[in-house]
C-alpha cells in the first residue's frame, strides 16, 4: 500500500509509455508473425515466413548496409564531434553558450529542408559544381550525389549535435583537478588526454554513439534524397514495404530485426558505462 502511494506519481508516465510505446511495440511484434492476403490485408494466421525471408542474403545485405551506415555515422560524428565538444568546454562561459547555441541552431529548421540544402550544394548543377566549373577546375560536374558516402555525410550532419552535446556533457563534468594531478605527476598533455580524459569520457562517447547510431538506422529520407536509392537501407525498405509493397507483416519483421540491433548497441553501451558510473559519482 505504502509502495503504491510512493509510486503513484509514476502512474501517468507509465500509462503514457504503455499507450505510446508499449502497445505499438506489441502490435509490431504480433504483426511480424502474421500473414497477408493478395491485397495486402493482414490475415490472422501464424507464420515464421517473414523471419525466414529477412534472413535471405538479399535482405541480409540491407541489414549490413544499415549497420555500416549507422556505425560509420557514429564514427564520423565522434571523430568530428569529440574535438568540437572538447574545445567548446574549454571556452570562456560567454563564448561557450554561443558555441552551444550554434550547434543547436540547425534544429530550428526542418531536417527535410536541410537535406534539400545538401542537394542544392552537392547536385550536378549544384553550387559546388558550378563554382568548380566556373573556375575551370573541372570540365564535367563531379558526381557527388547518389552515393553511399553522400548518405553518410547527410546522416552524420543531421545527427552530429547529439554526439557533441553528449561528449560535451561528459567533458564538462570532468574534475579539472584530475588533469592538474596528471600534469603534476609528470604526464604531458597528450598522456593526460589518453590516460585520464579519454577513459573518463567513455560514458559520453558511448552515449553519443548510441544516440547517433539508433536514429541513423532508421532515417530513410536522407538516403532517399541524397543516396537516390542506390543503396537500400532498413528505413527505406520498411517504408517501401508498408506504403508500396503493402506487406506490413514483412515490414514488421524488419522492424523487429532493427530493434534487436538497437538493443545490442544499448546493451554494449550500458556495459561500457556501468563500471564507470560508480566511480564517477564520487
Amino acid at each position: 500500500m505504502k509502495a503504491l502511494r510512493q509510486n503513484a506519481l509514476a502512474i501517468p508516465i507509465l500509462i503514457w509509455f504503455g499507450l505510446l510505446v508499449g502497445i505499438p511495440l506489441v502490435y509490431v511484434v504480433v504483426v511480424s508473425f502474421l500473414s497477408r492476403d493478395d491485397l495486402g490485408n493482414i490475415v490472422w494466421q501464424f507464420t515464421l515466413d517473414n523471419y525466414r525471408r529477412i534472413l535471405d542474403p538479399v535482405y541480409l545485405r540491407v541489414f549490413v548496409n544499415s549497420f555500416m551506415l549507422a556505425f560509420l555515422t557514429g564514427l564520423v560524428t565522434l571523430l568530428i564531434g569529440y574535438p568540437v565538444a572538447y574545445i567548446t568546454s574549454k571556452l570562456d562561459p560567454k563564448r561557450r553558450s554561443l558555441a552551444i547555441g550554434l550547434i543547436i541552431l540547425p534544429f530550428w529548421i526542418s531536417s527535410l529542408l536541410r537535406t534539400y540544402g545538401w542537394v542544392i550544394l552537392l547536385g550536378n548543377w549544384g553550387i559546388i559544381n558550378n563554382v568548380l566549373m566556373a573556375l575551370g577546375l573541372v570540365d564535367q560536374p563531379l558526381q557527388m550525389m547518389y552515393r553511399f558516402g553522400t548518405t553518410l555525410v547527410g546522416t552524420a550532419y543531421m545527427l552530429i549535435p547529439f554526439m557533441i552535446i553528449a561528449v560535451y556533457n561528459s567533458v564538462d563534468k570532468l574534475d579539472k583537478s584530475l588533469l592538474e594531478a596528471s600534469y603534476d605527476l609528470g604526464a604531458s598533455k597528450r598522456q593526460t588526454f589518453l590516460r585520464v580524459v579519454l577513459p573518463l569520457t567513455i560514458p559520453g562517447i558511448a552515449g553519443g554513439f548510441t544516440l547517433v547510431f539508433m536514429p541513423a538506422l532508421g532515417l530513410y529520407f536522407i538516403s532517399d534524397l541524397l543516396g537516390g536509392g542506390q543503396t537500400v537501407f532498413l528505413g527505406n525498405l520498411i517504408h517501401t514495404l508498408v506504403n508500396r509493397g503493402r506487406n506490413r507483416p514483412l515490414a514488421a519483421a524488419f522492424s523487429v530485426g532493427m530493434i534487436v540491433m538497437v538493443i545490442l548497441v544499448v546493451s554494449i553501451y550500458s556495459r561500457l558505462t556501468k563500471n564507470q558510473k560508480e566511480g564517477l559519482l564520487l
Binding site: E180, A181, G186, A187, L200, L280
Partner: peptide
C-alpha cells in the same frame, strides 16, 4: 611546465583518478 618540475602535490580533494584502482593510481607518475 608542471610535469617537468620535480615537485608533487597532494590536492585538497585528493584528485585520485576514479577509473584507476589504488595500485594504478600510485603507479601513474
Amino acid at each position: 611546465a608542471p610535469n617537468r618540475r620535480n615537485v608533487n602535490t597532494v590536492f585538497q580533494n585528493y584528485a585520485l583518478f576514479p577509473h584507476l584502482n589504488v595500485y594504478d593510481n600510485i603507479c601513474y607518475g
